[in-house]
Amino acid sequence: MTFRTDVDLERSPAYHWTVTSVDVGPCTDPIGKEIMMLGEQIGEFTGQAISTRVLEDIGLGPRTEVTDHQVGTLCGVQVDITVTYVGTIRPGGTVAGTGTGFVVTASGQTATFTGTGVGRFTAPGHLAWRGALFYETTSDELSSLNGIAVLFEYEVADGKSEGRLSEWK
């Protein structure tokens, strides 16, 4: 569900604005119909980390590079995916991640992607990731990925991953 935030503002004598209350609820159009920002789910995968390296701290925080191999469906097609991403632990304990990867369909067609996201630790060795992917392909089977943003939700636990992808409308 997507949420909206209504903010009530009050102007002080010095013409500064002050937030006096915040109301959070579902996003709605002008006639009150709920608006969903996510489109349909377009992919689902399970995977396994096949490589992990600790990288030099370049002043941003501890960094790890992970390569993950995944299998599942994307746009209704069986696929294998390989992705390498770098996660940097930030102050406050979240993890900033960027990565690149490629997709191979059962018929040998391919797509490449880049992505960025944020992870949070849910338990020791467990991360919940949320972010966006951007694909490029000449594949007929995966051509619907061109020109759209794809949102991901991944759960990683002890080297195993599960993920879902949705089109962002």
Rank of each mutant, 00 (worst) to 15 (best):
M1L: 08
M1G: 14
T2V: 09
A14Y: 06
H16C: 08
T20M: 09
T20N: 09
S21P: 02
D23F: 13
D23C: 07
V24R: 09
G25M: 02
C27T: 09
D29L: 02
I31E: 15
E40W: 03
Q41W: 05
Q41T: 15
E44H: 07
E44C: 07
G47Y: 02
A49F: 04
D57I: 11
I58H: 09
R63T: 06
E65F: 02
T67V: 11
T67F: 02
D68R: 07
D68F: 04
G72Y: 04
G72E: 03
T73M: 13
C75N: 12
G76K: 02
V77W: 01
V79G: 02
T82K: 08
V83A: 14
V83F: 06
T84A: 07
G92K: 04
G93T: 09
G93H: 08
A96S: 14
G99I: 00
G99S: 01
V104Y: 02
V104I: 14
S107G: 11
Q109P: 03
T110K: 09
F113M: 09
G115I: 01
G115E: 01
T116K: 11
A123N: 08
A123L: 01
P124S: 12
A132M: 13
L133E: 12
F134D: 08
E136L: 11
T137I: 05
T137L: 00
D140Q: 14
E141H: 03
L145Y: 02
E153R: 10
E155F: 04
G159S: 07
G159P: 05
L165C: 08
L165Y: 12
S166C: 09
S166N: 12
